[in-house]
């Protein structure tokens, strides 16, 4: 079942994004945090001390929990809008960036 509500708005064109080398379909301009959530990619990063999975929480740019890596930079995904070919990394940031 597509979790998109299409009664009031038409989306723009369909595009593909890359999440941890997995291809995900979405529509251009949709909110990244929401797209990840509805595609069941809910575990976005690990908490600092206990290393527990964390994900989107407030969707308002306040809690900072929905951070992902784009171009090796930490950004909050609720403030990012889908563009064709976007490459996103989720998971244990420490492991992923540990090439010193």
């Amino acid at each position: 079942m597509d979790l998109r509500v299409s009664s009031y708005f038409d989306r723009s064109k369909k595009v593909n994004i890359n999440v941890n080398n997995m291809k995900i379909e979405a529509y251009e301009g949709e909110c990244l945090a929401v797209v990840l959530f509805v595609n069941k990619i809910k575990k976005l990063r690990l908490s600092p001390k206990k290393k527990q999975s964390r994900g989107m929480f407030c969707l308002m740019g306040s809690c900072q929990e929905c951070a992902v890596l784009i171009d090796d930079k930490k950004v909050i995904s609720c403030n990012v809008f889908i563009k064709d070919g976007m490459k996103i990394k989720v998971g244990d940031f420490d492991k992923q960036q540990n090439k010193i």
């Binding site: 079942m1 979790l3 998109r4 509500v5 299409s6 009031y8 708005f9 949709e30 909110c31 929401v34 959530f37 509805v38 809910k42 575990k43 976005l44 908490s47 527990q52 999975s53 964390r54 994900g55 989107m56 929480f57 407030c58 969707l59 308002m60």
Partner: peptide, 25 residues
């Protein structure tokens, strides 16, 4: 409450009314 999949009620509202998605079935 920190389990991914637990979200704010306001977050849910924004998802519904601004992004036009339902979070899950």
């Amino acid at each position: 409450w920190t389990i991914p999949g637990v979200i704010g009620l306001a977050a849910c509202t924004v998802m519904l009314k601004s992004h036009h998605f339902i979070p899950s079935k």
